[in-house]
Write a protein that binds this DNA or RNA. Structure first.
Lengths: 145, 145
DNA sequence: GTATTGCCCACCTGAACGGTAGGGATAATT
DNA sequence: AATTATCCCTACCGTTCAGGTGGGCAATAC
């Protein structure tokens, strides 16, 4: 009985990003500060932040006084973008993914596939919600995951 | 880069069930017929059908002329029920699952968690679509996955 | 030069997914 | 009673991935 769920990675990524979005001032926030406040495993967070950096969501600064900052304004970073970056496509089946379309290997005729039709509507609704909400849209209260 | 996607199990399960829903007459359909028509690996399908049986979606008949039939009318079997049975909860985070709620271990205060709020709306939309569509609701054409 | 930071590479454990193999129990047919 | 076609049960297996951990090198501020 597996769960169709977000990985810890994604949750940690979101929490880290939300924390960065809330950070006052312009100084980079050291990784250890993020890990400490959000109670994330430091070394694991390191991997995640690297992904976020490669994905263009955060910028890093090395050396003393180094750390991480959002690469763009919080309003331009949607939950959808984060999840897609860490997790992969939002689609439940490859044939309805916008970003990573792939035909099902044993599909007879995609245009009439009932499963596809349904999953397409699920994907659309999901994307609508996740892409329509940014890091700036959330309430200014303590956040967890 | 993993995909947030349905497993083959679920897709096979849906295809098998749709096939059973379309089967004419009342005679049980042998597993080999399902596997043959839908091109599913027979032994793997066996496992899946067992799950569906334990979940009360199909009934099995042993011996010669044995096979499988839907346990209830197609209209009462929703996609949501099938996916939940095979895959697990529809929720993207455990704390928004209706059927398998679980508090996030490191959550500060669930009621104000921004991630939770968002995932809750995703879950609701998804459930609305998947629970609102039954095996009887699909078009009478050749189906794949 | 020293302290603090990020960066990179290697490794580990447990669990899953997607199967496969082989035999035993049941029931209809002859 | 034998045959045949079906489901049922247990075991196994290879690959991948999630979720980490550990150690050391590189850069920067002071």
């Amino acid at each position: 009985m597996t769960f169709v769920m977000l990985t810890q990675r994604s949750r940690y990524a979101l929490r880290a990003l939300i924390f960065l979005a809330r950070a006052p001032g312009i100084a980079p926030v050291p990784m250890s500060a993020i890990a400490g406040d959000q109670k994330l495993p430091r070394k694991f967070l390191e991997i995640i932040l690297t992904d976020l950096k490669h994905g263009g969501l955060v910028t890093s600064y090395r050396g003393k006084l180094g750390g991480y900052r959002l690469a763009r304004s919080a309003a331009t970073i949607s939950f959808g973008e984060v999840i897609r970056l860490i997790e992969g496509p939002l689609a439940l089946v490859p044939c309805v993914s916008q970003t990573a379309y792939q035909r099902c290997p044993d599909c007879f005729e995609e245009s009439v596939c009932a499963i596809r039709k349904l999953m397409l509507s699920v994907r659309d609704k999901t994307a609508q919600i996740l892409d329509g909400t940014s890091l700036a849209d959330i309430d200014p209260v303590r956040v967890a995951a």
